[in-house]
Amino acid sequence: MARKSDDITCNVKAYRMSKGWSQQELADKVDVRRQAIYDIESGRYLPNTAIALRLARIFSCRVEDLFVEQTPQEVQPVHVINGKDDTATRLALGRVRDRLVGLPLHGSESIPFGLRSADGLLTPDRKNAQILSSSERLDKTIILMGCDPAFEVLGHHVNRVAPDARVHCRFASSHRALGRLADGLAHVAGTHLHNTDKGESNVVVASQKLAGLSSSVLGFSMLEEGLMVAKGNPLGIRTVADLAQPMVRFINREPGAALRVLLDDQLQRAGIDGTVINGYQNEVTTHREGAYRIACNVADAALGLRAIAEAFDLGFVSITAARCDLVIPNDVTGHPTIKVLLDVLQSAALRREINAIPGYEGSITGKLIADL
């Protein structure tokens, strides 16, 4: 296999599906492993000449029909409206007459503004909903639960590919998201549990929670986790051990949250009892709540992500990088929006944007981690 390329569009999956073949069936015909077919279809790798010719012969087409070179990315002059920070690279774009205007998605501007429109209104008996959206729109809406804020970015990429497709992202801890998935209350669950000596925690816990529900675990992002602190880190916090200083006001996450497990593990290694930390019992349930308390000067440190710290103009002390995965039951893969989401996960555009988010890295985006 050769190196991956973001400049080539791979059509092998479309040809395979038109034949009604599984990845394993195609792999048998080409005489390669199933993982090779997966990597080819995802665009992670380009096959060597022999395999490319073999694929073309099997599909009775040309090699250039299977692997199409993309046209160069369009570049246009832009007028960027700079805010407090001019280092932002992600932009929201719009045309004002003949001028392309860029709004930096950095700091607080990366967090959505305003209220969301409702799809329905709960009736007084709280057992029914008055529907405001069309049935067709609801049929193309999926629910993704998890606590990676970049899920909203994924949702926007899905909507760009299919304007009538929607991804409702709802914040939930990894355990809660997997529980909702097992209960049939979500289409997709995000999880970023930290590995132990028992193996891949995302895979192990998902397998336990889903209790035999056939599913795929796909990589989404690598994200930087740690301590959010006041801008400039005035208390000089460098490690979790520094949280034990009497002057530090700490905000914890709820028991079971991935970051809480990470903290307790780090404290145990340092030989520190959590009860000596001022604020160990003060808990919030989201990254944003912790960041907000620091921004309002009612706390000095809280567990969170680098991306959230930067959004609130805070400092950040890195502890580790965790892999966030998406768990998708196989029985929902026929949903039209799930199909789009699976294709988007393999796109170079999504990987490029994930790489541009502070504290994120997209090398594992779309990679098959495990079949449950």
Rank of each mutant, 00 (worst) to 15 (best):
F171K: 03
I143S: 03
S173I: 07
G190A: 06
L193Q: 13
S173L: 07
L154M: 03
I131M: 13
K140L: 01
T196Q: 11
S207R: 15
T196G: 14
D197V: 13
F171N: 04
R137K: 09
H157E: 15
L154S: 01
K209F: 14
S135G: 09
G179Q: 10
R180S: 13
G190I: 00
K198I: 00
A165T: 07
I143P: 04
L185S: 12
G199S: 03
A206L: 08
D139Y: 05
F151A: 07
R180G: 09
A182P: 08
G190W: 06
R170Y: 09
A129V: 15
N159T: 13
Q130G: 12
V161R: 10
F151W: 01
D183N: 14
V205P: 09
R137Q: 08
R160C: 04
C169Y: 10
V158M: 07
G179I: 06
S174N: 07
H168M: 06
F151Y: 02
A206Q: 08
H194P: 10
V167H: 01
E136L: 13
I131F: 09
L178N: 05
A189M: 04
V203L: 03
A150M: 05
I142P: 05
A129K: 03
R137V: 05
H157A: 14
K198W: 12
H175D: 11
T191M: 03
N202R: 08
C147H: 05
A162N: 05
R160L: 07
K209E: 15
S135R: 13
V203R: 13
G190H: 02
Q208N: 11
D183S: 15
Q208Y: 09
L154D: 01
E136H: 11
V153S: 02
P149S: 05
G146Y: 01
I131L: 14
D197A: 13
T191S: 15
F171L: 04
A172Q: 02
Q208D: 12
L181A: 08
L181V: 03
M145V: 08
G184P: 13
V205M: 14
E152M: 05
F171V: 12
M145R: 00
T196A: 11
R160S: 04
N159W: 07
P163T: 05
V203E: 00
V205A: 09
P163I: 02
N195P: 07
A182R: 13
K209G: 12
D197R: 11
F151S: 04
L210R: 13
L178I: 02
S134A: 14
V204T: 00
I131N: 07
I142G: 03
V158N: 06
I142F: 02
P163D: 04
V161Y: 06
A182Q: 12
